[in-house]
Amino acid sequence: MKNLMLALSVVLFSSGVAIAQDHSQHNHHDHMNHTTFKAEPVNKEHSIYHLDGEWQAHTGESLTLANFQGQPIVISMIYGSCTTACPVLVNDARRIFEALPDAYKGEVKLVMVSFDQDRDTPAALAEYAAKYNLGDDVWTFLHGDDNNIRALATLLGVRYRKRADGDFDHSNLVTVLDVHGRVVERVEGLNRPVEEAVNALVKIIDENHLLHR
């Protein structure tokens, strides 16, 4: 059963890639698909956990970003009704996680933040996580208000814009944050190689002796 799910998700994700690539070649003529924004450069010296806004996890729990302090995280921004790039971004985060040495997997959290204040309620995000078979111990999907979403996106260098049809144009970016919430690695684009993100995570975990706590 699990293998079947995996195979299904591979099919799903690879078709997502195909759609996204196709879109990039034809977006002048196809306004139904979203536009990819190039990510902005960001400050890597300081912690983004200075943002003190409240978020709701897909589990219903309320938290601030500082809750993730003390371990590295892989963070990306998506929205639930996005069928092209977003599933690929989720899969990219999963690929990073799965490429970690087994011993390191317990020290990393994957955080997916929604652009969509209105549609991606915690309940909707819980459904999303369940549909993609993403376990609560590793994955956190966050719902926030427009104010907090914009602030976080800006610090991550993710550019986005809500379209009239309710969908979002956005940068495709997966970011690795260190134990203090500083940006250490950014993977821009879809379905990119994961080695550098994995190496960054391993380095953070080693340097902070997280395995031997």
């Binding site: 977006n27 536009t35 990819t36 902005e40």
Partner: peptide
Amino acid sequence: QLLLTNGD
């Protein structure tokens, strides 16, 4: 930020 949505 100048967000031009009419193409990459």
